[in-house]
């Protein structure tokens, strides 16, 4: 069963908060992982791996570079879980 984008955003925000210490409320769809949230490529891989486990979705490594904003990741997960 597909999961709603709002549920994905909430779950993803929890993961980002745990990995980086950023307040979950700051993890908004329009924000860039790199430019706005200051998340580097290694932390991004951790977030991706934890999201794969949480949402039972496969996010190929070559896809990660396309997930520029939080919204990009939310849409990818919602569409592929």
């Amino acid at each position: 069963m597909a999961i709603s984008e709002s549920d994905v955003l909430a779950g993803l925000a929890e993961i980002v908060a745990e990995e980086t210490g950023i307040d979950a409320a700051e993890v908004e769809s329009a924000k860039s992982f790199t430019d706005d949230l200051d998340i580097d490529s290694l932390s991004m891989m951790t977030i991706v791996t934890l999201a794969e486990e949480k949402f039972d979705v496969r996010i190929p490594d070559e896809e990660v570079k396309n997930l520029v904003t939080v919204g990009d990741a939310v849409a990818y997960i919602a569409n592929n879980s």
């Binding site: 891989m45 951790t46 990660v64």
Partner: peptide
Amino acid sequence: QEGPTVYKWASF
């Protein structure tokens, strides 16, 4: 090396 991909493999 492909750093982030290696990081993911090794770490998890």
